[in-house]
């Protein structure tokens, strides 16, 4: 276990270093942020002053070296646009995105898994076909269009739910979140549904396939022969067996929801990190782009690690560790 963790940590550091180098060079190659940041009526002097104060007049290796040195002290640079530490910009907005991602994933699991199990138990039934057809819509309709439709129906037409922003925030056990006020919840519903529709479909399909395969296996027959009740077979034995692929996918999807919720965040004007990233890319705000991607990479590394741990809990045959 210790060896496993140490090896993982070493790998993580290497990945982070390589990522920082690639992203740093990549953003540098796109263009010069100064062309985007200075206003149209800036004088040449103002331009030169800005180039100097943002450190863009230094050679690239020096810029990267300074970045690395500061990064080792936990400082991932200061945003060109906001003049604030890029890491604090990201951490300020991360809670909004996390909240959205958790609710979306929760919806995906509590809606997707039961539907998938029932569909898998009765393949070919009307229910199965209905669920499967609907889930195709979840896959194929563009996320953007779904969002517009949700706004159109529930905000413009019915006028039930607000369409923009995060709403009022409440505080519970020291956590600030829009989950704790009615107004906040109302603001959360549409974006969370928008973000979860694709994931619901994905989980339905994964669960259904898993259930269908597993129901035919010998251990299910033996369980039946021993007189184990059908409900127990499904909920305890089958479910345990199909969970591994689902946990893998849920883990990866959770990462991707956080990292790439940008479409939903843009449509619903949700103040999360996705929008921050897109704006940063458009304005070549390199410190924010680099810091964001490093945070996301670190997050994926952590999620993968947690998923590995969960595997070993679900299936004792899977062992962690370096010792062969």
């Amino acid at each position: 276990m210790t060896v496993f963790i140490i090896r993982r940590l070493m790998q993580a550091l290497l990945v982070l270093f390589v990522t920082s180098l690639i992203v740093f060079l990549g953003v540098y190659a796109i263009g010069n942020p100064i062309d985007i940041l200075v206003p149209d009526d800036a004088t040449e002097m103002e331009r030169q002053q800005a180039i100097h104060s943002l450190g863009l007049d230094r050679p690239l290796p020096v810029q990267y070296g300074t970045f690395l040195l500061h990064a080792l002290h936990g400082d991932l640079g200061t945003s060109f646009v906001f003049n604030q530490p890029s890491i604090s910009l990201i951490l300020d907005r991360l809670p909004a995105t996390l909240e959205l991602a958790f609710v979306a994933l929760f919806l995906a699991i509590v809606i997707g898994m039961p539907l998938g199990i029932i569909a898998g138990l009765k393949p070919g039934s009307r229910f199965d076909e209905g669920v499967m057809t609907t889930s195709i819509l979840g896959f194929s309709l563009p996320n953007f269009w779904q969002g517009m439709m949700l706004i159109m129906i529930f905000s413009v037409w019915l006028g039930w739910l607000p369409s923009t922003g995060r709403g009022q925030m409440g505080s519970f056990l020291g956590i600030h979140s829009s989950l704790f006020t009615l107004d906040g919840l109302a603001h959360l519903i549409l974006p969370a549904i928008n973000l979860s529709l694709f994931k619901i479909s994905l989980i339905i399909r994964l669960t259904r396939t898993g259930v269908r395969e597993t129901m035919l296996l010998d251990f299910v027959k033996f369980a039946r022969a021993r007189g184990v009740p059908e409900t127990r077979i499904v909920v305890v034995h089958v479910l345990k067996n199909i969970l591994i692929p689902i946990v893998t996918v849920v883990g990866m999807e959770f990462g991707s929801i956080i990292a790439f919720a940008v479409v939903t965040e843009t449509i619903f004007a949700w103040p999360g990190v996705g929008k921050l990233l897109i704006d940063a890319v458009m304005r070549l705000d390199r410190p924010v782009v680099v810091a964001y991607i490093l945070v996301v990479v670190a997050m994926f590394i952590t999620i993968n690690f947690v998923v590995d741990l969960i595997y070993s809990l679900l299936d004792p045959r899977i062992r962690l560790g370096g010792a062969k």
Partner: peptide, 10 residues
Amino acid sequence: VPNSPAPFTG
């Protein structure tokens, strides 16, 4: 103004 990308210098 420190680190200003678009100062009023002009």
